[in-house]
Design a protein around this nucleic acid. Sequence first.
RNA 1: GCUUCCUUAGCUCAGUCGGUUAGAGCAUCUGACUGUUAAUCAGGGGGUCCUAGGUUCAAGUCCUAGAGGGAGCGCCA
Length: 465
Amino acid sequence: MERTVIIDALKSTRLNEPINVRGWVRSRRGNKQINFIALNDGSTIKNIQIVVDMSKFSEEQLKPVTTGSCISATGILVASQGSGQAVEVQLTELEVYGTADPEQYPLQKKGLSMEYLRTIAHLRPRTNTFGAVLRIRHNMAMAIHTYFHQHGYFYFHTPLITASDCEGAGQMFQVTTKNLYNLKKDENGQIDYSDDFFGKMAALTVSGQLEGELGAMALGKIYTFGPTFRAENSNTPRHLAEFWMIEPEVAFIQKEELMALEEDFIKFCVKWALDNCMDDLEFLNQYVDKGLIERLKGVINTEFVHLTYTEGVEILQEAIKSGHKFEFPCQWGDDLASEHERFLVEEHFGRPVIMTDYPKDIKAFYMKLNEDDKTVQGTDVLFPQIGEIIGGSVREENLDKLNAEIERRHIPMKDMWWYLDTRRFGSAPHAGFGLGFERLMLFVTGMQNIRDVIPFPRTPKSAEF
RNA sequence: GCUUCCUUAGCUCAGUCGGUUAGAGCAUCUGACUGUUAAUCAGGGGGUCCUAGGUUCAAGUCCUAGAGGGAGCGCCA
């Protein structure tokens, strides 16, 4: 008989008709007369209840049906006699696909910590929490593609392997086919890459932005959405060595339009979650973060604060004057610490902040210089709890100014001639941003640790599964 | 990378000042129960106290080193 997915079975109005559902057993309980099986197939967080009349089945037949086992259950879909579910399946035929020895199966019906579940990441998608997170993760990916597609952006695939060592966004993972125990060195003791696979040093990308700009200079509006790698030894609940990043790049827009894009985009994604993932959000709201749904609704109904870096520093200095203690100082020109950002977002304004016009020395070389010659047109979105969720900027489109900045910073650009060509041939004002997908996931799910919003996290000292 | 905390049953944790045979809840197993919802009730089994050294008559407990994990910070998305 054809399988019905549980999300459809639970909504079905075809009562008293045969049905077949298949999935993994969450629990079985009962007595000599009657047994109840809670079955989940991942299509929804909700289980379907299989009712077993024990006068028609033997204990022996039910014995392999334990928590974690996989079964196919055929029966009659009926209105439930119990409370807690509208419909249930009265079992007529049982097939066990795979058993799960209860003495060994590591998932229990309750009491599992996130830290423990990380050690069994191959099984944790079967839990309610991770099922919810992973369904939401899929939905967020769809929201992102939908948003950009509807707004005329093209999905632009930037390379994961890059030979430019000055993307500047962080430490890189090297890619090589060379024998690391027997490296050829030149007369200066430097590694000779001429016989390596790419003929030069290569690494995994830390950002698709520079290539993304090439796309925007031809297609007008592009976005990237792919894996990104940082070899930094970052040990926090907000960093991964392998994460997914979304980087739109748009020709012919200026700072105000960029800020509007950032805000509109995030709100679209959050609204998508509220519109499409309510069952999962309600579960997370109940068991993970009591304020989740309220906070999500709050974001789509509030206007983000627009604040320049200089104004932000003034507010922080006022706060210090009136007695607020920070661990780090906060002078104009300093990079803001997490505590400063958190103060502005969580205490001072109580809503998301788009901070702009940073001192040029604390930002990347490609950001557009303001007329004051001191600040650049960065536009970072700061969120409660998670901090910087978006890092964006208007790009410097003037070749001379860009070259001057590259020289001032002594950035080796010999492998980046192609990037400068965008400014040499038909340069255009343009802007874009990068959004960490898992940071968006943290916000939308209310989860506390970024390692729990990606199926198989990679962090320092950890690449299991 | 820095600071700090943690590691005891399958899981979550307690374990007093260093002192008898290391405990609890849940899970699991056995039994009871005619509709359960993290079912309930009764009983049983289950331990490399992270690893390696050290101090001591005696170490889960104190000391040193190492491994793994969490949090805060830095770097960043």
